[in-house]
């Protein structure tokens, strides 16, 4: 089916069908909402950051396309258990990957598979929504609302 397989790889479809960490966190101390008005994608991200600035737990609830949901699932998987500083480093690498700059594939986990999205300009916003929401949650102590428009 043309080159669609590159975009919708098995790993992406799996995260879309069975997203990881797909739940509201009862004891979240950081949260942020992301919204892409163009396509109606929305995500609420919950984080529990402990006293050592480590992301102890993370969860999300979202409605959106396969790319946005899979990307969010992969993102939560890869930043769970790492320090806030490390999460920001991972965020920067993901952004660099999508904008076709040099990046460190090793630290991105499954999310590395989304590198093909850079070939689909109309879909980049879908892939980055959850990551910008993460950045917003890490930057702000309270609930943030961001948009990729």
């Amino acid at each position: 089916m043309y080159d669609l397989q590159e975009l919708y790889q098995e790993v992406v479809m799996d995260h879309n069908r069975s997203p990881r960490n797909f739940r509201k966190l009862g004891n979240a101390n950081r949260s942020a909402e992301g919204f892409n008005p163009l396509c109606g994608d929305q995500i609420t991200l919950y984080l529990e950051v402990d006293d050592d600035d480590k992301i102890k737990d993370i969860g999300f609830q979202a409605g959106g396309c396969a790319i946005s949901k899979a990307s969010a699932s992969m993102m939560t998987d890869v930043v769970k258990g790492v320090s806030v500083k490390e999460a920001e480093h991972i965020f920067n690498n993901f952004r660099q990957m999508i904008t076709q700059e040099d990046y460190d594939a090793e630290i991105l986990g499954d999310a590395e598979i989304l590198s093909g999205v850079s070939q689909y300009p109309a879909r980049i916003k879908c892939a980055v929504l959850s990551w910008h929401t993460l950045k917003s949650a890490l930057d702000g102590a309270d609930t943030q609302r961001i948009t990729t428009e």
């Binding site: 089916m1 043309y2 080159d3 669609l4 975009l7 919708y8 163009l38 396509c39 109606g40 994608d41 959106g64 396309c65 396969a66 790319i67 689909y120 109309a122 879909r123 879908c126």
Partner: peptide, 19 residues
Amino acid sequence: HPHDLGTVLDRRGIAIRTG
């Protein structure tokens, strides 16, 4: 999701609007 559908159709040369 309409957006995924739009991408599948687009690769077949079919332009629709989603959103």
